[in-house]
């Protein structure tokens, strides 16, 4: 059996990839997908822990997280479409009407 640590290292890698994607990408769609990768990294970790600890509740949490991710996709894509309608671009640098 593959030790649980391997899964956790993989999920940590995925999470970091997601974080880097959100920070350096300038395209809203890619930023959005990166956030989904972060959520799925968490899913992988929950699943691995659940199997390792022989608990069932982790399996249910994964379904809850998938539901949340779906709802987030609905809202997020709607917002991205609204931005595209307004400025014909999905570039994060275009969000510059307000500056601190």
């Amino acid at each position: 059996m593959v030790p649980v640590d391997y899964y956790i290292i993989l999920s940590a890698f995925l999470f970091v990839i997601g974080v880097i994607g959100v920070i350096i990408s300038r395209n809203l769609i890619i930023m959005f997908i990166s956030i989904e990768i972060m959520l799925n990294a968490a899913n992988l970790a929950i699943m691995a822990f659940s199997r390792h600890l022989k608990l069932m509740d982790g399996h249910v949490f994964v379904f809850l997280v998938m539901t949340v991710a779906a709802a987030e996709a609905a809202v997020g894509l709607a917002i991205i479409i609204a931005i595209f309608r307004g400025r014909e671009s999905v570039d994060a640098d275009a969000l510059n009407l307000m500056k601190w």
Binding site: S11, A42, F49, L53, E72, V75
Partner: peptide
């Protein structure tokens, strides 16, 4: 858009933290 991306980013951190605490 700014609220969504910041909020979703933060939620992902929170969820990963919960996963680790669960582990």
């Amino acid at each position: 858009a700014k609220y969504f991306f910041m909020g979703a980013f933060a939620s992902a951190f929170l969820l990963y933290g919960i996963a680790l605490v669960y582990g």
